[in-house]
Amino acid sequence: MPAIVRRLAMIPALLVFVVTITFALVQIAPGDAADVLIAPGARADEIARLRATLQLDRPPAAQYAAYVGRLLTGDLGYSVSRGQPVRDVLRDALPATLLLGGISLACTFVIGITIGAWQAARRGRALDAGVTVVGTIVGAMPAYWLALLLVVLFTSGAAAWGWPPALRLPAFGARDAALAALGIDSVADRLRHLVLPVAVLSLIGAAGIMRYARGTLVRVLDDEAMRTARAKGASRSRVLWRHALRSASAPLIVLLALALPGVVSGSVFVEQIFAYPGMGRTMLLAITSRDIPLVMGCTVLFAAVVAVSNLSADLVLAALDPRQRDRAAARP
């Protein structure tokens, strides 16, 4: 499968591009990594010495070569705002984001396709139209707005309206501070902290992909094979959930790739609102504290995660349907 090999080779090329662009932007932008380190009232010779220590006085090309050289050895630089190597900061943040993003993507997929299939079975009826309207509105919601709405509903709202304790959800952090202080790491507690962030990302994501799912399944259901299955005695629901979903599986996998950018962007806002210690929040903190090495590290890692996810979607696609192999390779 040389096409897949070509796709694999795209990843390092893409990463080099991202590193170069980010580096170039940092060079053009006013200020540099030394700014946050300079104490107010520092003397000019002290500033010059600091810049020399950070090698910021060397020509951009030399700095670039040095940065790429260090990247290749896995050294992403030192994060001033965190007081630890960028690599360590990212190693702590990445699993949290992969967990949040992975669960959200799975929920997006399941909810979106279930609703789309349900609509396809009722196409043209009032319920179908109603769900489309609701989906359009939910799909247009900014993630941070929906997040704030859910926080209101499930914290102060839940308390005010006397909802059962199970529905009073935590809206802060990845785990309970009191439990963490006691050294208890409970899976149930972590899951409870994931409910609201995952709900935000997957509701918006599902609203985005359900119309594609509906469209795909409507086409498949109108196919003669489905009529044959009905004629052979398969029930309506069996035709929909077994036959139609299976033959639509390849285009539906494409929806995963389509939902990914939304989940990534959404997670930046969601992590910010729920104080969830992932990549998005790390990047925002790096930006507000002008921690340039950390900003660059986050950008490169984001690009890597997205590139690998896109590639995996293509690989799954190729495994499912041999006809898609060449098309997947042609898709840049």
């Binding site: 591009f17 940092v26 053009i28 962007s265 930046v268 900003v295 950008t299 690009a303 840049p332």
Partner: peptide
Amino acid sequence: DAMLAMPRLVLLLVGAALWP
């Protein structure tokens, strides 16, 4: 192609982060 492969928000954040 390379820029399409990045989530636009991340690109925006880098740009918006470096300038006032």
